[in-house]
């Protein structure tokens, strides 16, 4: 039996703004098993980042609130913990890498100080030991001249180096779960390749579970075991990575895969999904993808389909694969 690391169940995170309620995450269920890399894919505004912030409970300073659902880490609910208890989990058991390495490092502290802070707090090392550990971590992530970097400020490093520092910081306390929110989006391709390889290597060595949030299907194909596709605050499809690319079911997933130009594949015209992502304060009733879907039927406009497991761990939220008559009776 695989051990479950993170279980997000029916999570609802709403934002209360001037123009009404924004249901950023609306009933999302994601499970990450031990040693597994789960990709969360979707376009801007689909709720993938809010899901990760909800897990880390980092929404206090926003108008956002977890309204319903549960988040369990190693079987223990995270939502009932006090802020103090949560702080012991953050950075220690669950670590996070953010998209923008420049804005997620403090510009006025030296790299060494920022790295040592977490190590001293969580591993309870003294100053000397913390420093040695920090330098080891920088070496581990392949930063050249680690000793000097310890005494430098973030602005003195390049984007790739800063992202390595972020990874070193995240991995410093040997977390059981790593949440990486678009970790390579701001980087150049050759640097992205370095960082992805580093993450794979760290995963293989320490068997860390990873929840990888990205919009890049190429990164998903290369890194993940399982993929969750999100659209407008909901999970629309979930399966293992091979099935998803070979046999996508949901029209949105199909459209997404067809929209990406592939290296070495010369096509005259790309598939594209017409229209735009719906405005969050004005969600369509019924299936949220219906206005952009070429297969939309009557029922799609009336009733939102459920996420149904069709066969062997392949789940899809679409009326094309569900018994419509039964649904109408209910």
């Amino acid at each position: 039996m695989t051990e479950k690391m993170l279980e997000i169940e029916d999570l609802k995170t709403y934002f209360y703004g001037d123009e009404g309620v924004v249901k950023a995450v609306d009933g999302v269920t994601i499970t990450v098993n031990k040693g597994e890399t789960v990709g969360v894919v979707g376009e801007s505004g689909c709720g993938k980042s809010v899901t990760s912030l909800s897990v880390m409970r980092l929404l206090q300073d926003t108008p956002g609130e977890i309204v319903d659902g549960s988040i369990k880490f190693e079987g223990k609910s995270l939502l009932n913990l006090s802020e103090k208890e949560m702080r012991m989990i953050r950075g220690n058991d669950i670590a996070m890498i953010f998209q923008e390495p420049m804005t997620s490092l403090n510009p006025v502290y030296k790299i060494g100080k920022q790295l040592e802070e977490a190590i001293k707090l969580h591993l309870r090392y003294d100053k000397k030991k913390a420093r040695i550990h920090a330098v080891n971590m920088l070496n581990l992530v392949g930063l050249p001249r680690a000793n000097e970097v310890m005494n430098e400020y973030p602005h003195q490093l390049s984007g790739g180096m800063r992202q390595r520092v972020m990874i070193a910081m995240a991995m410093a306390c040997n977390p059981k779960l790593l949440i990486a929110d678009e970790p390579t989006t701001a980087l150049d391709v050759t640097i992205q390749a370095q960082i992805l390889e580093l993450m794979q290597q760290l995963r293989n060595e320490s068997n860390t579970s990873i929840m990888l949030i990205t919009h890049d299907l190429g990164v998903v194909a290369e890194m993940c075991d399982r993929v969750v596709v999100m659209y407008a605050g909901e999970v629309v499809e979930e399966s293992d990575v091979y099935t998803l690319f070979e046999n996508p079911k949901h029209p949105y997933t199909k459209g997404l895969i067809g929209s990406v130009p592939k290296l070495g594949q010369d096509v005259e015209k790309l598939d594209s999904i017409p229209g735009n992502v719906p405005i969050p304060t004005n969600m369509p009733s019924g299936c949220k993808f219906a206005p952009r879907c070429e297969f939309a039927m009557d029922i799609c406009w009336k009733k939102d389909p459920v996420l149904l497991e069709t066969n062997d761990k392949h789940a899809c939220r679409c009326w094309l694969y569900q018994d419509q008559e039964k649904a109408l009776e209910v």
Partner: peptide, 14 residues
């Protein structure tokens, strides 16, 4: 060559 090989391709079997 390096640039081309660094591009992630959306095909997990490759």
């Amino acid at each position: 060559k390096a640039l081309l090989s660094a591009v992630p391709i959306p095909d997990p079997k490759l």
